[in-house]
């Protein structure tokens, strides 16, 4: 029921964005707006369908009950997103060679709560060096960063 309502809201927001953000090329339907508009409408219809199914007490509720749950799910998901965002930020500024070992150590210690520092640091250094060798040999440049330029 709640998922259906959320989908309807997403669809309405999408349709509003399509109307305000996509200029009308004036070449008639479908034009650049047509396909995204159609998808918004279909999503809204599916959302209403899901709400109706929820009111009828269908399999959706059964699914919710049977899914496995883990403790600390939100912190781990948010932490993973945080690690990736931090990595992207550091790649652009510190470069691959500095950002990668830092992020590996952070993920191991922060997300996985590992405290055996020697294997962690060895893995961070080895994996970074291995990736760097492979990508350089294949002629694909990795980010060097704007701070140091490695």
């Amino acid at each position: 029921m709640r998922l259906g309502a959320a989908l309807v809201l997403i669809a309405l927001a999408w349709l509003w964005l399509v109307r305000t953000e996509i200029p009308d090329a004036g070449a008639g339907w479908p034009g650049p707006r047509g396909f995204p508009q159609l998808l918004g409408v279909v999503l809204a219809v599916l959302g209403v369908w899901m709400m109706a199914a929820g009111l009828g007490g269908s399999a959706a509720r059964v699914d919710e009950r049977t899914r496995p749950t883990y403790t600390g799910e939100l912190p781990v998901a948010a932490g993973t997103l945080g690690v990736l965002v931090l990595y992207a930020f550091l790649l652009e500024r510190a470069g691959f060679l500095i950002a990668t070992p830092l992020v590996i150590v952070l993920a191991m210690a922060g997300l996985l709560r590992l405290r055996r520092w020697l294997p962690i640091v060895s893995l961070a250094a080895g994996f970074t060096f291995g990736c760097w060798i492979i990508f350089e040999a294949l002629g694909t440049p990795l980010p060097r960063g704007s701070w140091i330029g490695w």
Binding site: Y87, C131, P143
Partner: peptide, 14 residues
């Protein structure tokens, strides 16, 4: 998993 996260990032970048 940690190595995959790094690979995902540099793969997306590349």
């Amino acid at each position: 998993g940690v190595c995959i996260l790094v690979l995902c990032a540099i793969g997306s970048y590349a």
